[in-house]
Structure formats: structure tokens, C-alpha cells
Design a protein around this nucleic acid. Sequence first.
DNA 1: CCTACCGATCGGTAGG
DNA 2: CCTACCGATCGGTAGG
Lengths: 205, 205
Amino acid sequence: MSPRKSVAEARRTRERIVEHAIAVASVEGLEGLTIGRLATDLGMSKAGVLGHFGTKEALQLATLDEASAIFARTVWGRAQHEEPGLPRLRAVCDAWIAYVETEREVFPGGCLFTTAAVEFDARSGPVRDAVARMYRVWRRRLAGEVRVAADCGDLPAGTDPDQIAYELTGLYMAFNQDIQLFADPAAAERARRALARLLGQDLTR
Amino acid sequence: MSPRKSVAEARRTRERIVEHAIAVASVEGLEGLTIGRLATDLGMSKAGVLGHFGTKEALQLATLDEASAIFARTVWGRAQHEEPGLPRLRAVCDAWIAYVETEREVFPGGCLFTTAAVEFDARSGPVRDAVARMYRVWRRRLAGEVRVAADCGDLPAGTDPDQIAYELTGLYMAFNQDIQLFADPAAAERARRALARLLGQDLTR
DNA sequence: CCTACCGATCGGTAGG
DNA sequence: CCTACCGATCGGTAGG
């Protein structure tokens, strides 16, 4: 019997649980996510699932954390090599559109953050706090990139970074809705047009 | 014993249930809404609550219907006397901002439609269908008002009504989030500025 | 509108 | 990681 292998296997099991929890939560919400459902889907016992986290709340936080890592990797990571300012901002927004459009296997019910934000925005507790913190970080990063773009003249002088970050957030919420609620094939096109108005992006490229 | 009075009382009880269901659902969601919770809050038995609707799904649909009536009355109703086109569109958007800001007693957890849309956008069934239908109607009305405004020259000639309606939806989703998740006092100001950009609205009036 | 009840499922624990 | 179990609550029904 090898303790090392056992530890590695346990970690792998935990990863499997979280990965599936993300998929379930994107459809049912973080509250609709249940231990029993996860156990059945993964062919485990409820105690086996819960043992990795202790409480449902800890499972929710772990699910949120991993979703956050995927989002950062997919959207922000892809734009990291671009120059700070408008080039990187455009790359981020393009990656964001692709993320909402193509990550349907990871998030079959759409962006988990949109779901979690609306689900917990009227509650209190650690999950709500985690969601709010993630949104704040994301908005601050967006606004920072807008600021650099404005400072170097790529965006108009009077540009308000927080305002643009706010409008970008709304743009992607509506985009997510067009895809999830209406399954509208024109959704991405509309999102890109809104983006063009906001950032003066070249539509023809 | 008066059958008429009894019927009227039953209707009044039903209205009380729906009114409270709206408040609870705006915080907990339409799935988080439970018969037992309603019964306790209203000092009734579960059977007494459920008897008015038959099933939880029927209760959810009744709650959604009443919320829709309130929304239509508060947002669209207030602008009805304005001239079709940009004047009415502006009045609708102003009323919409006021609605999100001030209807906190009716919707303590924020706009029920935002919550319901995200909660059901990845599911199937009558509730999802009802939510989608309501959003479609609302978007079509908005787009119609934009079209009139563009036709009579109050908005630029190339204006795409569906595009504007899409961007307006996103604007209000982000606005709702700023209020609910961040309790940001600058939320309304930001929403008005986004509106100004979108509709060329005069900010000084 | 009530009491009394149903089977199913919830999050979680004990003990191994 | 499992089985076996806990009290609480879920939506819903029977009968009045």
C-alpha cells in the first residue's frame, strides 16, 4: 500500500468532483447543486463526496474558485502577451466572447459567475462575499486596461474606466442571456457590435 | 354564511400569497421559494397555500405573472402618455431606473426577472418558457420604440432597434448587479451615463 | 381553509 | 473511500 499514490488519487478524485460540480452548478446554480446528485453522477457515496470538502458551503467555494481559475486562464491568459492598453483590452474582450460561445462543455448552463452573482446577490455569507470579490477584481482589471488605453491616447481623453468596465459587464450579461435563454445565433454578432461602439473596435478585421 | 364573501376572501388570500411569493422569490429565486416557507411567513398551513395553485410550478407561474404586471405598470405604464418614439423611450428608461432603485419593498432581492432569467435559462419547462416569452415581449416593445424614434429622425438613420434593445437589457442587468451585489451608490449615475451614450439623452435636465 | 400524513431528498455524522 | 443512519424539510395528498 502506497500512501503517496493514495494522496494523489484522492486529489484526482477531488478534481473530478469539482469539475463536475462546475457543470452542474452552471445549470442548477450553486444552491441547486446537491451532494446526492454529485455522488450519483460520479458513482460515489454522499459521504465520499462530502469528505473532500467538509460542508456544502466549502464545496460551493471550491467550485467557484476553480471556475474562477478557468475563466482567468481562458479569458485573461490568452491576452497576456498583448501590449497593455487597447490591444490587450480588445484581446480580452474577444477571448471573452469566445469563452461564452465555446466553453459549453465546461459550463453547459452558461457562465457560472453570472448565475452565482444573481443567485447570491441578495443573500449574505462567504459564498456571496467570494462572488462579489471576484467581480470586483475582474472589474478593476478591466478598468485598469481601459485607463492605460486612455492614457496613451487609444481611447478618447475623457474616458471613464469604471464606466466602460460597467458597460462591458452589462454587454456580456446580455450576451450570455441571448445564448442561454434565446439560443440566438446572432448573439455574438450583436456583442461584437456593442463592443465596437464601446471601444471603437474595427469591425472588418 | 355568504358564499360571495368567501370567494372574495379566498381571492384576497391568494393575492397575499402571491405578493409575498414575489418578495421571497426575488431573494431566494423561484426554485428557492418553498411552500413551507410561505405558509410559515403567512401563518397558514402548507395545504392552505398550495390549495390556491395546485402545484409549486403553478405558484411559480402565478408569481411571475404578477411580477410582470407590476413591471409593466411601473415601467411602461408611467411612460404611456408620452409621444411614441424617443420621448416615450426616454420616459421608459427613466422609469426603469426608478423601478430598480425604488421598488425594494416589492422586490427586496432585486428585479425578479433578472433572477428568474438566469435561474431558468439552462432548464426546460413551462417556467423557463414563460420567462423567455416575457423577455421577448419586452425586447420587442423596446425595439419598436427605438424604430419609431429612428424613423422620425430622433435617432441616427443607421440605428438598429434590436441592437439598442439588446444593449439596454445589458445596461439594466449590470445596474441591477451594482445595486444588489455591490450596493454601489453611484449605480444610478452610471446607468444614466450609459443611457446617455446609447440614446443621446440630455444629462443636464 | 385545517390536521395528519406520504415517500423522497436534503446536509451532515458515526464508525470503520 | 464505504454503509448506515440522523433530524429536517421538500412537494404533494387524503379527508374533512
